[in-house]
Design a protein around this nucleic acid. Sequence first.
DNA 1: CATTTAATTGTACTCATTACTAATTAAGAC
DNA 2: GTCTTAATTAGTAATGAGTACAATTAAATG
Lengths: 153, 153
Amino acid sequence: MATKNVADQTLRVLKDNKLRVTPQRHVILSYLASHHNHPSVDTIHAALSKELPNLGASTIYNTLNTFVERGLVIELQNGDGSTHYDYFGTPHYHAICTNCGKIVDVSYEGFGKDEKEFEKRTAELSGYMISGNHMEVYGLCPECQVKLGIKRP
Amino acid sequence: MATKNVADQTLRVLKDNKLRVTPQRHVILSYLASHHNHPSVDTIHAALSKELPNLGASTIYNTLNTFVERGLVIELQNGDGSTHYDYFGTPHYHAICTNCGKIVDVSYEGFGKDEKEFEKRTAELSGYMISGNHMEVYGLCPECQVKLGIKRP
DNA sequence: CATTTAATTGTACTCATTACTAATTAAGAC
DNA sequence: GTCTTAATTAGTAATGAGTACAATTAAATG
């Protein structure tokens, strides 16, 4: 059994979600699935304009909003004024640098279980019918600690 | 020992943070400390314009940004396009309704401890020097579940 | 293929937030 | 209390992310 490439995988994801398969959607989702750089709309636009020269910014907004509605992708704010996007393959959360805005994925064995437990507890406490969560941790990334001359205790 | 009122408490908070005490800052912080409605800049402006008729929107933005920098207040997005603010008295997190945007505070015995543990683990995994976090859970609030005719399992 | 229905695009627009500047004011020294 | 000065405020203009809209294009279905 050969390993599926990203294009095949994302094609299947689109079909499974009953989304009409357009080159734009396919390319955007493939970009998100193969990069872990938490791009903004601008970043995506710049990266894909070689592949699809007529790709419009409004299409990217539309497409990403559709993906977010289906839960394929999540939105992140890092304080630079624009929204960043992340394809949500395996359970993880984010550490965001308060100095340079860098976002990294964090996970550990059992995070998925902890997360479910947290959602269940929240449902009991609040009465909300939970559909998802964001966990973000803020701080200085290793590079900025060096750059700012900060010693770790 | 008499219980301090909100105005006295917030005055102390401003002084402790070495912030110059202005009526604007005092009134805005008192509003946040005595309301748990997670207001936007507009909401605050509308609520305080009786008390301070000349209060400018830019002052509210400046003031809130100052408070956020000092960690007195945190920012929240509920998807309506504007930023909401919350005075951070005791450790808690937020449940946000994906239908109406309502934000409620959630906490439980031991949440503060869990939170610290989570930050410590994140520091070890990512190398970040942690200064804070946001935990948010999304779902339908009880009112919207009824409104949308959804049965809870 | 032909039809139907949805997606894309570009432009115009909205509106939250920031930048900038002149006028005002809080805090501390005398 | 008055003075000094450095910070804050308020108003307006500017920015820029994101949305609305209408015409065009393209995917799905049979």
